[in-house]
Design a binder for these strands. Structure first.
Lengths: 208, 208
DNA sequence: ATTATTTATCACCAGTCGGTGACATTGGCA
DNA sequence: TGCCAATGTCACCGACTGGTGATAAATAAT
């Protein structure tokens, strides 16, 4: 019961610590090397433990992926900064929401790799992460939502899906290609240009 | 010299045929299994020949990828239907161009997998294909271009990159996730909804 | 008919992968 | 003390990967 006896607790015989080390290593591997390097051996190497422990504590890659998914439940709530003020129009709301989403995704390599995984392969592994990611996103949007309504002449769900898809694709392309379709996306000025164009689209399409 | 002696020419000792079989198998593997299954062994299996011949005739995966890139030079010109009529406005031009691009990409699994590869990994292999793909796209757009100019108040390159990114992402997501961000993309009606929303965006953002 | 060259096949290498069973070590409990 | 469960380590398995050298078979040139 008394767990405060160990003097140094260096790195031996601590299941909780090993558990955490494995989970952290798994996220690191996925964020750094992408889903291609997401394997038992690679994760065990980075965690500095035997791969057998991954099977024991998580039940292999599946259970480990599940744990990552659970860990992902609040990724955007934690990353996105609080809204500065109440938006006055639906267009303003979409604009700030999309900007927050882009900022959060741009600084989260793990979620970027998951997003890339989603559109590259349809495996049960990525399905878990995909579900966790979209649910976290849905909760976050619902929480931010006020009583603003889009113009009834516009298919808002489809339009917003297009905007999110564009933002996501630009971010993913920027890390591997450095840009997309002639639009450079390397420095902050490039991103401001892209976000300005997005904001212009939003304002024009949701103009009242 | 005389190469018309062989009576049946079944499947033996024909370098040109083997060459073509390998190239075709490589494209098939990439289109069917994605860049994950794009390997020497898998391609040789599908081509029905020894993998040694891939090294001999193409110089390994690199040369083979280069050959695929060269083969890709006209993918969109071949796929996209000729423009029905001359567009009257810049918005119309962008609208028909984007619709053609989406139709061509939706029915070309190979290019889809290459696009997914581009945003998943930054390897020299995919760089070749990426270059070939974007150059083919650029040539096609330049050929379609008339003397129409966008409104000077709009950042047209950035806006168009956003539109293409959205279209591309929706198409890639549809094949693996069946939709994106709550927008189903399974049947033709779903796609018409998405294209209508895209067309609305284009008309509003490029309105004169 | 006898060489040469091209075309294709085979056997093998070292390395990695996911996965598993046996073993060693430690700490707590009776 | 002895026991037992928890924790960690090691060795191994079969299968696959990219890559290469040697060899066989068929065609072309002499």
């Amino acid at each position: 019961m008394n767990a405060s006896i160990e003097p140094v607790e260096g790195k031996q015989r601590d299941r909780a610590k090993t558990h955490e080390a494995i989970l952290s290593a798994a996220k690191d591997v996925l964020a750094a090397e992408g889903f291609q390097g997401f394997g038992i051996n690679s994760i065990a190497r980075r965690a500095g433990c035997d791969k057998q422990l991954i099977y024991r504590y998580f039940g292999g890659l599946e259970g480990l992926t599940e744990a990552i998914g659970a860990d992902l439940a609040t990724w955007i709530s934690d990353a996105a900064s609080a809204p500065a003020g109440q938006p006055a129009t639906y267009a303003e709301w979409v604009e700030t929401l999309l900007a927050s989403y882009m900022a959060a995704l741009r600084h989260n390599a793990l979620v970027q790799k998951i997003a890339a995984w989603e559109i590259s392969e349809a495996s049960p592994l990525v399905a878990q992460l995909s579900k966790a990611r979209s649910m976290a996103l849905g909760r976050w949007i619902a929480k931010q939502r006020g009583d603003l309504l889009p113009p009834t002449t516009i298919d808002a769900p489809a339009t917003n899906a297009i905007l999110i898809a564009a933002a996501q694709h630009l971010i993913l392309a920027s890390t591997t290609l450095g840009g997309f379709s002639g639009l450079a996306l390397a420095n902050e000025a490039d991103w401001q240009r892209a976000e300005l164009a997005l904001a212009t689209i939003i304002r024009k399409v949701y103009a009242v």
